[in-house]
């Protein structure tokens, strides 16, 4: 019986971890897609959708962790075992790329991409609140996370 309970806990833990891993890998693939179209102006509906998909995902990602304390704890545990630079370069688009996207999104004085692009910095700020103190220090000292 005890073995069964331990097995159940382990399975639950593995399932929870895979949930976080899936979230990160989905975001990473959207980032790669978004980075691939930087500079391919003028943006049309397809490019706009790719950009939107990534920035909405990042926003949802931090919102989900912020609102769900258990998920947040699991995420912190998972991140402790990971290399921060690898994690950041995986999910976060570089600042220069973000700036370029914002420039490319502006035509005839009007900003024409999804509003989520402008909210990227706010999403990153929320990310600071999610991290534990130890992870936050590492995060702030990692150049890939800036």
């Amino acid at each position: 019986m005890k073995i069964l309970i331990i097995l159940c806990i382990l399975c639950g833990h593995a399932f929870a971890q895979s949930d976080i891993v899936q979230m990160i890998s989905d975001t990473a693939s959207l980032r790669i897609e978004a980075e691939s179209i930087v500079g391919t102006t003028p943006y049309r509906a397809t490019e706009h959708q790719i950009i939107k998909n990534y920035f909405v995902r990042i926003k949802d990602f931090v919102d989900q962790l912020k609102e769900n304390a258990r998920k947040k704890r699991r995420f912190n545990n998972y991140l402790e075992s990971q290399e921060m630079s690898k994690f950041c370069s995986g999910i976060f688009i570089g600042v220069s790329d973000w700036e370029q996207i914002k420039i490319d999104c502006t035509r005839n004085r009007f900003f024409l991409c999804a509003e989520d692009v402008n909210e990227y910095n706010e999403s990153k700020k929320i990310f600071f609140e999610i991290l534990s103190d130890v992870l936050l220090k590492i995060f702030q000292n990692t150049s890939e996370c800036q």
Partner: peptide
């Protein structure tokens, strides 16, 4: 250009 504004 119309296409620039359509998505937004």
């Amino acid at each position: 250009v119309y296409e620039d504004f359509d998505f937004r």
